[in-house]
Structures are given as structure tokens and as C-alpha cells.
Design a protein around this nucleic acid. Sequence first.
RNA 1: GUGAGCGUAGCUCAACAGGUUAGAGCGCUGGACUGUGGCUCCAGAGGCUGAGGGUUCGAUCCCCUUCGUUCACCCCA
Length: 423
Amino acid sequence: MTKGIRAIRGFRDIPPEEAWKLSYIEDRTQEHFQRYGYREIRLPMVEFTELFARGIGEATDIVEKEMYTFLDRNGQSLSLRPEGTASAVRAYIEGGWKSQHGITKVYYSGPMFRYERPQKGRYRQFYQLGLEAIGGAGPLVDAEVIDLLHRLFLVVEVQDVRILVNSLGCGKCRPDFRVRLLEYLTGVARELCSNCRRRMESNPLRVLDCKVPGCRSALEKVPVMLDYLCAECEDHFSAVREALDGLEVPYNVDPRIVRGLDYYNRTAFEAVCDRLGSQNAVAAGGRYDGLAKEIGGDAPGIGFAMGLERLGLIMNWDDVVPENPDYYVAAATSSARIPALELGDRLRALGFSVEVDLEDRSLKAQLRSANRMGIDSVLILGDDELSGGTVTLKDFVEKIQREVPLEEFMKEVMAAGTGPERR
RNA sequence: GUGAGCGUAGCUCAACAGGUUAGAGCGCUGGACUGUGGCUCCAGAGGCUGAGGGUUCGAUCCCCUUCGUUCACCCCA
């Protein structure tokens, strides 16, 4: 079990038992996004390192220590994408989509890569589904995006998810706030944990969401961004909230919401759940009006991404069952092996999914397989059936069995048929 | 990058304080039932106990190293 080549740490195989769930989430989510006018965009999984360095921010953890970066054969520094927003905005600029009318609304789905220690709900290759609304600066865009996210959780039946929103201010008001925050933190530095004292230097905003009790009490009167918003940001944020209230989207304003990426401004939001191990974010996003400028364009935007594995972890799967095959064709004798395969093909041509034994196993073993696979209808072919042009139908549920002319059976199937729509 | 736990059959796990031939359940294959599933019974296949070194008369067990894995910290989706 330890022999041979295995998957890279943090890069796991998603077996069929699990993969169908991710597909299910993707399907439901994409339908949902499309109802809001979002269209799929396929983005490269590798970009120039510079895109992420400038877009996400040189000083962020992602860029500093979590990217898969390498030189290609031309000596250019490339990186596996750690997230999708930077690419989407790059595509917007590169494609000149600004000239199109209205807001560009796109969604993407696929693997992201981050060099982190794997743990529950966290892998080095993980799957994200995200969307971006680029080119719109107004608060209604923010509200619709958050509304869409809220309603997505209704569609995929996830309970226990809370939506938290905050405003991070803008380039005008955030620097002031930062100064006030640092003043305060310096004052209470003795009461903070060692982590937070370190964070004061690296990323003071992060101190706000420390969970250590001592820090929490020391931070009771900490200034929050919301109290320092400039007039424009204040107006924007209250307009967003007004719209959310009008749409009856349940949310909480949480001043401790901070984003780990530099490009965010104004509206930031997270969907969190407690049943996710130490991770609690299922989806997160926000506005990034300054991002495009960093990479050679100019456009406001907002978007979010959600972790498919994490969503899969908290979804209620009780009412969602994978479909079993419709028929099992069993060969009772060796001369019926190929005719069994043929019959399988005929049924498949009608849209059914059919299993046929390929291992020359006994009839008993074949029936056992059918039963294990949850297949209710078995068709048996043997020498008797072949010589008589019949097929034996066995129904595990009704517990009945009868032998009928093969062509008659096929006609029945076609008539009642309506080849079930498969997914 | 840091810390802790765990690596025994395909899977989930046993093996009193180091002791003889490493067991069980599930799964798989066959049989009881000459061409008939589920339930039951019987049989069989399947192990360099993650790898390497050490202590010992003797190591799955103790020690060291290494690899893998899980969870947590950090951080994030």
C-alpha cells in the first residue's frame, strides 16, 4: 500500500462516490448563476506570476508562501492559479470587454492551487466556483451578488450558513483608520497574544478576528472600520444594506470580516458554517475596485468564490441520491455472453444505462452484482432464451420473473420507454 | 513553516506488561442451491505489521531516523 507512485501531498483523487457530489453542486450552482445572467468563462490555470503578485498583493500569505511558482522553458515565472478573480479581471482587460454594453457577468469553475498544509476541508488542489461582476460600481451590484449567494444556499439545501458583511472602506478612508487602529493596538499590546503582537506589524486588521479570549477582551473598544468610513463609502454601504433588507436577505454586519487579499475595498462578505473543522468559510468575496488598475486596466468589480469540497461537507445529501443503472443483462451460459453485450447496446441506444458482466462470472455472481448495484431489473439470456428468441425478465422489487419474446420486450420498453433523461 | 496523533489483509480495526504459526468483521471468489440476488451456513484467496537502523534470546509492541497520513496553529474557499 505504500509501494508505487502515489499522488502528491494535498493532491487527492476524488473517487466516483464523491465526485458525483461535486458535479451535482456544480450543476445546480451553474444553473443558479445563469438565472442571474452570469455566463461561463474558462480561464487558464497558469498565469504569469506577476498577475497574482500585483493583483493579490505582494505581502499576502498567498503570494508570499502559498503559490506554486516555477520557471517555464523560456525562463518566465509562471504560477498555478491560487484563485480566479485576478484571471477574470485580466481577461476582461485583455479582451477589451469594457467596450461591451453593461456589466460583464461571468462565472468560472475549476481547481485552484495553494501550497498549504492539508487538513480538513483544505487541500493543495481544491475546487472553486466563483463569479465576477465587472464594470459596475453601484451598490445594487453588491446587493444582487449577495442575494444570489444567499439564494444559492436555498437551492442546494444547506442549513447553518450565515452571511456576514462588512465594509473595508477605500483608499481614501482606510489609511486613516489604520493609523487609529495601530494607536489603539499599541496601547493594549501587553494584553495581546504573541500572535497578535506579530500581526500588528504584518497585518493589523487581522488582529480583529483573533479568537484568543485575552485578545477579545482587550479589543472590546477597538475602533472598527465602519466608524471611519468616508462619506462615499458610508453611502455605498448603507445602500447595499438597504437593498439587502428590501430583498429580505438575512445577514449580519460583522466588523471583524477582513479579507486576506489586498485588492478588496468597500463591501466584503463571507458565508460561514461551524461544521467545517477549523475552517469556517464556505464562500467569500467582495468588491475590488482597485484591482484592475494594478494590472493595467481600470474597472470596478465585485465577486466571490466558494469551495466545492467545503460546500459538499456541509450539504444535506439525504434527499439526493446518485442514479443507479436501469438494467443488468446477465448471461446464464457462455454462448450468451456476446448476445448479452448486444442487448445491452440496444437498450443503451434507447437511453438506458445498462450493466453487463465482463468477467465470465457465474449467473449467481452476476445477480449478486446487480443486487449490490441497486439495479432492480435484470435481463437473463441463456441457451434457452437464445434458441427461443426470448429473454427472461427478473424484477428484484416485485420478485417476479417471466420469459417473454425478446422483440416484444423491446417494443414494450420503447413504448413505455421514454428513454429516461440522463444526466 | 510549527505542534500533536496515527501507519497491521482491498476497507474498518484486534493482538494481556516485548513471547511461539499476526486475528476478526466487512468486501471478494467458490460451494450448500447442475441457469437465479437479498438472509443463513461452509470453504478459499488475500500480510516483508509503511521503510531503514538499533536494543533484546525474541519486536506489531521499546528507541532513533525517514516517508506517508490525520487534526490543529498560521492562513484561507
